[in-house]
């Protein structure tokens, strides 16, 4: 490429870079800076908060070994593993149903998608009602479990509600993947006498994998940042369901912006690491497109 053309190209993408710098890079750098300061600690003789900020280096990161952070980290991980696994299985099943149904297709698709369309804060309230002491959940199982109290049951309630809410999202993306599989592949399988199970494992799943990988990736990103569902459904300050995002929120609410920023940075790093591993292991195809183009250039 000629030198002039390069500059032109750089100029053309500069608005994008500017927006990225403003909404991604600046907040990240600002959070990284904030994470090394403390503000508003201590009172003077008249009882006023001493103003100004103080550089503390990595002291705010000391909380990373604290019980509360470790608990939030574990909760986030457990919620992510459990909900994404359940949602993937249910989502694929939903996609197969939506794809296979012949009559009332619109109705089936719409009804499966409703949970995804309900705002999380609203579904949180709804599920809180379901999991109340005298709620629907206890009426169905015929036992008196106090779901919203601290304990394993609270985690389970969150996992159930989150799965209900977001399995349709996986279903939707997988459905899109299913629809581009040519029917002749299935006809060939039929001619060769493949069973339904074989067809699913050997044809449907490999061909739908690119769409599924994207869906699962999105779910992982979302689940790692989970905040509103436990907050609305079980309540703030309940350690059994406190996620990293909730911990960051709580620290910021108590005006401890330093530790909040430090935990936020760690959460970003955690998400980045998991996504990197995930893309490396499963989703090499995600970038195949870009690589092949680069090869041509």
């Amino acid at each position: 490429m000629r030198r002039g053309a390069r500059w032109f190209a750089a100029l053309m993408i500069s608005p994008t870079l500017l927006v990225l710098a403003l909404v991604v890079i600046y907040p990240l750098l600002s959070a990284a800076r904030e994470s090394m300061y403390v503000r508003g600690e201590g009172l003077d003789a008249d009882g006023f908060v001493i103003e100004g900020e103080r550089f503390v280096g990595l002291a705010n990161y000391a909380g990373l070994v604290g019980e509360r952070f470790v608990n939030a980290f574990a909760n986030t991980t457990v919620f992510t593993l459990a909900t994404v696994a359940l949602e993937t299985v249910l989502g694929v099943a939903m996609a197969l149903v939506m794809h296979g149904v012949l009559r009332g297709r619109g109705l089936v698709r719409a009804s499966i998608l409703i949970p995804w369309a309900v705002p999380t804060a609203i579904s949180g309230l709804m599920w809180r009602w379901v999991f109340q002491a005298d709620g629907v959940a206890n009426a169905i199982i015929g036992e008196k479990i106090l779901w919203t109290t601290e304990g394993v049951q609270a985690k389970l309630a969150v996992i159930i509600a989150d799965t209900w809410k977001t399995a349709p999202f996986v279903g939707l993306l997988v459905l899109a993947g299913l629809q581009i599989i040519p029917t002749m592949v299935y006809e060939a399988a039929k001619v060769d006498g493949a069973s339904a199970w074989q067809t699913f494992w050997r044809i449907t799943l490999p061909l739908v994998k690119p769409a599924l990988v994207v869906a699962v990736l999105f779910r992982i990103l979302d689940a790692l940042a989970m905040f509103d569902l436990p907050f609305v459904m079980i309540g703030r300050g309940k350690f059994s369901v406190e996620t990293l995002s909730a911990l960051v929120w709580d620290e910021a609410t108590q005006l401890r912006y330093g530790p909040a920023a430090a935990y936020g940075i760690v959460l970003v790093a955690y998400i980045a690491a998991i996504v990197f591993v995930f893309v490396r292991l499963l989703g090499a195809d995600l970038l195949a497109d870009a690589r092949s183009r680069k090869g041509q250039a």
Binding site: W7, A10, I13, S14, L17, A21
Partner: peptide, 10 residues
């Protein structure tokens, strides 16, 4: 050029 443009925007 990209790095330059990035630095400028930052």
């Amino acid at each position: 050029s990209f790095v330059l443009a990035g630095a400028l925007t930052l």
